[in-house]
Design a binder for these strands. Structure first.
Lengths: 259, 259
DNA sequence: TCAAAAGTGTTATAAATACACCCATGC
DNA sequence: GCATGGGTGTATTTATAACACTTTTGA
């Protein structure tokens, strides 16, 4: 699956992108994590720029868009077991990165690559969620300075990336209903109240404790471990695991088409 | 909004496409209609070919993908008031039109255009629905021979177009729940049993008459006209109109993000 | 013993579902 | 009359929502 790659950020790596990628088409990933009781997403900066964008990249001529999303995510986060959900494409007629909308005046990349990347681009957007909230985002060239930003924060991203993040959050909230997407967020072992907090972070509002518990247990995605989380200062909550089998089948099965 | 266009199918029109369109990126539209009590979709053929595809086209450098979808649809169906729903992108690594997967051996188009269009393409897919089931599809060059195909039929389209149609049908069924997309299908005046038949055609199964009636009336999208449909051979069903105001606002408002 | 958070149960309401029954028409 | 499809009502079940009560811990 892997190809020999030139050193990241080298002239050769830029040439490879320009020579072997589909022109004017990109993928972007909104990578969520649940950390510090908040829903966050990954943002990176172009080297030498102050504006932030979400990770993204280009599509090699011989790879599918889904593979391109996976690859770019791997190159930038070192994670390769994420489940990616394509949720939309963005292609307004003047959608391009420029000095005025991204502050990319003096970033250290070759001019021919810069000309290439400053064309009008259509992007296909994916969202993904990481289970380990301590994952480091590795910002490869032409990016640097990765950050996690609060979804409720006021950060303004370059271009239409804030819009893309907003749409990703909506897609995530929508998918919560039909699939337990949320389970990808959680560590191997977790409590129902923790799961509820995550739900609330995604939905942007609070839900009833008792009702949440009933619903999530009835779904059959959770398995009781018999253990409890200790030293919480209050009554120790019970620890659960994911019913992996049930979870994986739910990802491929069709959403119920009810009337 | 309209630009002067070269004669369709002329050398100039092909040159314009190659010169002014984004490369390797297309839009495709699954146009549904409800006709003869069946759900159908529009298919066209390349001139000189036997294989069918769904309508589609290319994106001018200075137009948005949504505008491109609208324009191509207009050029091919003469309809310009359709509501388009983007539902996904398709981009497997070997997604291209070839003689083997589309039977385009001897279609009468210039070789440079043919080389251009036989590149690997990613397509962004939309679905749309027409309210007048008697709409004629105008197949412009390089297409000819437009047809309406049954969604339940066994027709095999070229490339991955059957897959795209299947996904469109799923998206349509999903959207039925949150929006009364269905109303675009209906003529100005219709009966509830007719509306029910349409629902059943989309969902692929039957629904309870009484319950359907209750639900659709409670939604507030229908207005009673006071008239009945005559000469049906049985009890004359009541005719309804769409509450246009309510319908249009529902199209722009967010889907409820319930828990 | 008290606060705080976890876990459980009860009730009210609304929605989905399954039918049963009557109605209006053409034959 | 009667077959056929349209229109209406009702009972059952299920889902949603609001909220009260109990349990377990650390301080």
């Amino acid at each position: 699956m892997k190809t020999k790659k030139p050193t990241k950020g080298s002239i050769e790596s830029y040439r490879k992108i320009v020579d072997e990628s589909m022109p004017q088409l990109s993928i972007n990933c909104v990578i969520f994590r649940y950390y510090d009781k908040k829903l966050q997403y990954a943002a990176v900066q172009f080297t030498g720029s102050k504006m932030q964008v979400i990770p993204g990249g280009y599509i090699f001529q011989n790879e599918s868009i889904d593979d391109a999303a996976r690859r770019n995510l791997y190159e930038q986060t070192n994670m390769d077991d994420l489940i990616l959900h394509q949720f939309g494409s963005f292609g307004s007629h003047n959608r391009r990165i420029t000095a005025s909308n991204s502050d990319i005046e003096n970033i250290g990349i070759p001019e021919d690559f810069r000309n290439w990347m400053e064309q009008r681009f259509v992007t296909i957007a994916y969202y993904s969620i990481i289970s380990d909230p301590n994952t480091e985002i590795i910002a490869n060239a032409p990016y640097s300075n990765a950050d996690w930003l609060d979804i409720e924060g006021k950060d303004r991203l370059a271009m239409d990336h804030s819009e893309i993040v907003g749409q990703a959050r909506k897609a995530l909230a929508r998918d919560l209903l039909s699939r337990p997407v949320l389970l990808s967020f959680m560590p191997a072992c977790f409590t129902i109240p923790e799961l509820q907090k995550l739900h609330e972070a995604i939905l942007g509002r609070s839900v009833d404790r008792g009702n949440f518990r009933k619903r999530v247990l009835k779904s059959g995605f959770l398995v009781k471990t018999g253990l409890v989380k200790e030293n919480t200062g209050q009554r120790p909550p019970e620890l659960y695991q994911i019913n992996k089998e049930r979870y994986l089948t739910s990802l491929t099965e069709d959403v119920k088409l009810g009337f």
